[in-house]
Design a protein around this nucleic acid. Structure first.
Length: 375
DNA sequence: TAGGCCATCTGGTCCT
DNA sequence: AGGACCAGATGGCCTA
């Protein structure tokens, strides 16, 4: 019983919190359930003005609901509430004249909660709450940024906070291992490293994000891809790094590569990919991107990647990572990992992140992977 | 309905 | 004194 004492009195709930933790000073809060709800639910859009009005409402409620208070058993609570009541009419009088009957409490005498003190306390508390909310929002924003640079990103199926952190940790570790060893890991090892310690749903999600079947969604690809890219594609087929899993549908939600571009705008991918080739490694301030890169994935950041696709071949190579030759055998044993792919392909296309929302992420991801895999 | 996830409030602690 | 950070508590929402 954490210590929070909630007196639920129907609609006129009085939340009285006193001695939430041992030895803590008496603090009372008297909001109606309604005001509490408002406070919680609308908090994300609160402004200082809202805070002030909330504060006022809180005061109104405090005054209006005193009759809803009931005994909670704790004398200190009672005292605090009494103080609140007393403040109404006798602000500066000594508190608790009737204390003669009660045994004197030890310890420092608690200061009387005058109306002014209560006001100050509430104001301070409000400000602290607002700061805390902002702080948590900032934290969440940072987490959202992290989600976007971690292999599996989807607007509709967001990774939980803890899973995002775990995946990020695994991702960093996996990339570090690649850099350290300078060798190309096999797909299964990479996926296993990514999924280490993740929950089953997240594991499935990540596994799904790491696979792609170009034949499923690119029937006309061969005609529309520029010829030089097709050439490069052919050269890529021999590369050991293929995230594609032939014969399996492409994931309907977040992906690790640019494949979604072809999901969402199958007829515009030619132009859509141009910016990638132009700015793959340098365009960290693309207009379509709403913020700076998170440090772990900054191409020239923590990983100190100096690699840039200077040649046409490198650029093509980046593109063709996603275009293995039809029929190319994927890594053995993927089937279990992608077992649920068939169901996932039922998700409507509109749920897939749009190119605009995803493009930068994709560029960065591809740039990262190219920098790593190109050796 | 239980459990997971989340946002918020809150009081304590540390630091400036 | 005030702000940042933290952890506990609480209640809402969602999903299996």
């Amino acid at each position: 019983m954490g210590g929070a004492c909630c007196l639920s009195l129907g609609h006129e709930t009085l939340l009285k919190k006193a001695y939430c933790k041992k030895e803590s000073s008496i603090m009372t809060k008297s909001y109606t359930e309604e005001s509490m709800m408002t406070e919680s639910k609308g908090a994300s859009s609160w402004t200082d003005e809202c805070l002030n009005s909330q504060d006022e409402r809180g005061m109104e409620n405090k005054n209006g609901e005193r009759d809803a208070m009931t005994k909670e058993g704790d004398d200190d609570d009672e005292d605090a509430l009494n103080r609140l009541e007393d403040d109404e009419d006798e602000e500066d009088e000594e508190e608790e004249e009737g204390d003669d009957q009660k045994p004197k409490r030890r310890g420092p005498k608690k200061k009387k909660m005058t109306k002014a003190r209560l006001q100050r306390f509430k104001l301070r508390r409000m400000k602290a709450n607002a700061r805390e909310r902002n702080r948590m929002h900032g934290l969440n924003d940072a987490l959202e940024s992290l989600r976007k640079v971690v292999p599996c990103y989807s607007k509709t199926q967001k990774l939980s906070k803890i899973e995002t952190l775990r995946l990020a940790k695994n991702y960093i570790w996996a990339l570090s291992e690649i850099l350290r060893s300078g060798k190309s890991p096999d797909l299964m090892s990479f996926v296993q490293a990514l999924c280490k310690g993740l929950s089953q749903p997240t594991t499935n999600l990540v596994a799904g994000c790491l696979q792609l079947n170009p034949r499923t969604f690119l029937p006309e690809q061969s005609q529309e891809i520029p010829s030089h890219m097709q050439t490069a594609s052919a050269s890529f087929t021999a590369h050991p790094y293929s995230y594609q899993t032939p014969g399996l549908p492409s994931p309907p939600y977040g992906t690790m590569d640019s494949s979604h571009i072809f999901h969402v705008k199958p007829h515009t991918y030619g132009s859509a990919l141009e910016p990638f080739f132009e700015n793959a490694l340098t365009d960290c301030t693309s207009p379509s991107f709403d913020g700076p890169l998170s440090p772990p994935l900054s191409v020239n950041g923590n990983f100190s990647f100096k690699h840039e696709p200077s040649s046409e071949f490198e650029k093509n190579y980046a593109f063709t990572m996603h275009y293995p030759a039809p029929g190319l055998a994927g890594p053995q044993g993927n089937a279990s990992l992608y077992a649920s792919s068939a169901q996932r392909c039922e998700i409507p296309m509109e749920n897939i992140m749009s190119y605009d929302a995803h493009s930068h992420h994709e560029r960065v991801m591809n740039a990262q992977l190219n920098a790593i895999f190109h050796d």
